[in-house]
Design a protein around this nucleic acid. Structure first.
Length: 226
DNA sequence: GAGTTTGAAACT
DNA sequence: CAGTTTCAAACTC
């Protein structure tokens, strides 16, 4: 029984290693093609210490060879194929998804792309290019572990005016919603925030839940009987 | 352009 | 797996 499971585990390990090796070979080959074609326009890197063989290097992380970069002591080229292959394999051993795109398209029917791993920003508020989500021009999601996130969906003035046009057609004035309604809405949002805090949700997730709650409140205002 | 800040990746 | 270090890009002055 135990030896059987050990055997299965061994098989898995070998299979994973083989997969990584195959993936590494593919990446090395694709990199060679990019270098020889030289057609792909990409941002040049400026690496000095990583030899462009670690994921710190954008070229390497994207599976590209360095081409017209400003890097020094670069090994991410055809002359150092073996070193590059070893580096790719080492990355894949650490993380089999290391060379997968970080931004995944939303599931079928969901048009919102999101960061695969999410960000971990603490000081930028996810509102500067330090944040991988912000840099990719997408909002943070529930997979993010960021603190003080400002990179969330928000209503802009145009959306608000469009909403008012819709409400006008129904003789509802968004800007004249009674104090009672505002108070009730705030109470709902506060309750949602407290619940999120009690459940230990991340700031980002809590914000998402509050926004969702706000959406529900708006629906209630527009369709009081629903 | 030099120095600082930032967060991902790598390392321990 | 958490804490620390290294790294290169983003940012500020």
């Amino acid at each position: 029984m135990e030896s059987a499971s050990l055997c299965a585990a061994g098989k898995d390990t070998i299979f994973q290693a083989a997969t990584n090796l195959e993936e590494a070979a593919k990446l090395v080959l694709s990199g060679n093609q990019v270098a020889s074609w030289g057609s792909k326009t990409k941002k040049p890197c400026n690496c000095t210490r990583s030899q462009c063989l670690k994921l710190y290097c954008d070229c390497f992380a994207n599976g590209d060879l360095c081409n017209n970069c400003n890097c020094s002591n670069c090994y991410n080229n055809t002359e150092h194929g073996l070193e590059r292959f070893k580096a790719v394999k080492a990355c894949l051993d650490r993380n089999p998804d290391a060379f997968q795109p970080k931004i995944e398209k939303g599931k079928t029917g969901d048009v919102t792309p999101r960061h695969h791993k999410g960000c971990n920003c603490k000081r930028s508020g996810c509102f500067k290019n330090y944040c991988e989500c912000y840099e990719a021009k997408i909002t943070c999601s529930s997979v993010c572990k960021c603190v003080g996130c400002k990179n969330v969906k928000s209503l802009d003035f145009k959306s608000l005016m469009n909403m008012q046009c819709y409400l006008d057609s129904r003789s509802i004035n968004l800007f004249c919603i009674s104090g009672e309604v505002v108070e009730a809405t705030c109470a709902c949002l506060l309750a949602q925030a407290e619940e999120a805090e009690k459940e230990g949700c991340s700031t980002c997730l809590a914000e998402h839940r509050i926004i969702e709650e706000f959406g529900k409140c708006l629906t209630q205002i527009l369709h009081p009987k629903v």
